[in-house]
């Protein structure tokens, strides 16, 4: 390849304008406390699943909010819903419901896709 110059690789940035944030909207509407997250990471630190594998609810939350859904889709079902994160969250986010709603939203979007 002899073409030089600057090209922007697609995966480099969050393309906020064209990303699909409907999953986030779906959750905001049904669980308003989802907006309260300040990304402290308390949930991920205490996470029962996170003890065994790379799984960070904090990360998934922010990815949903930015419309970067693919990683969330691949990982959200790893949550055991044990509820420790609810007890830790300093903002009172109803984390279990966020997970349940995210699962539901992905399920629904998959159903429509078929």
């Amino acid at each position: 390849m002899d073409k030089f110059g600057y090209t922007i690789s697609k995966g480099r940035q969050i393309d906020y304008d064209s990303n699909d944030r409907r999953i986030a909207e779906y959750i905001y509407e049904r669980e308003p406390s989802f907006r309260l997250c300040i990304e402290c990471g308390g949930c991920s630190a205490t996470c029962t699943t996170g003890n065994f594998t790379r799984f960070s609810l904090r990360e998934l939350n922010i990815l949903i909010k930015r419309g970067e859904n693919e990683k969330v889709r691949q990982n959200i079902r790893k949550c055991m819903l044990c509820g420790k994160c609810i007890l830790v969250c300093p903002r009172g986010v109803n984390t279990r419901n966020v997970v349940v709603l995210a699962r539901q939203a992905f399920q629904k979007s998959d159903d429509y896709a078929v």
Binding site: P32, S33, L81, G83, G92, N94, R96, N97, V100
Partner: peptide, 8 residues
Amino acid sequence: LGNLKIDS
């Protein structure tokens, strides 16, 4: 933990 919906 039975209630998924109730807020804090």
